[in-house]
Amino acid sequence: MIKIENLHVEVDGKAILKGINLTINAGEVHAIMGPNGSGKSTLSNVIAGRNGYTVTQGSIRYFDQDLLEMKPEERAWAGIFLAFQYPVEIPGVNNTYLLKAGVNARRRQQGLEELDAMDFMQMVQEKARLVELDPAFLSRSVNVGFSGGEKKRNEIFQMAVLEPKLALLDETDSGLDIDALRIVAGGINKLRNPERAIVMITHYQRLLDYITPDFVHVLANGEILTSGDAKLAHKLEKEGYDWLLEKDTAA
């Protein structure tokens, strides 16, 4: 689905990613772990198309297209979704309106008819139940007056509505209490399917107690130091990142 090769990225002239290689196929769940400042969020932001990141080397192919040539909205239409680490508050823009505009823009791109208001509302209410989001939130401004946990739940709700092929979840677990984490993780698990790839960016094992990844990658200092399966995450939980970082310096 997506193939990242030798990706080098700079922010304000500073090298953040230094040669990332990563291939993700449909149906897979990947966890990208690593200490703060290792470049995890940069990777997801570059894939989603956020401004301010300069790719100096390497490539990202997505369904055999040059992803880096695409605008953020084109990436969304092609099925990429980013759950924000810090969901943005947008006073005056209604939650439902945002989703309806997003869904219909994508349908137009695909040559499909726009959903009518009734069908859309029904679909949205169904998806809201998935993350136990109070339907009252649907008619409110995007993220305005939401608690930290509600914002994260709203991100997963949006994911459910937009039905991405590739979902990037940037620290969706941070700032959640245990109940909220359980609900969010439950929602994500229900959205797992053979056509969809999910990338979870986190520095805690916590989320992975609920969602078992197929692959775990450790990103530090702009490079993937090691990759493995779910067992790697348990090892990191017990031993921290130090053993990896030391190995890196020794090498």
Partner: peptide
């Protein structure tokens, strides 16, 4: 940030700018 958020949800940039401008006027 708001602009990118809307784009990442599939709203084209020009439309996102309109939406945010109307939102500003909404009050």
């Amino acid at each position: 940030e708001q602009l990118f958020y809307l784009q990442s949800r599939g709203i084209a940039k020009a439309e996102a700018r309109q939406l945010l401008t109307i939102a500003f006027a909404e009050a």
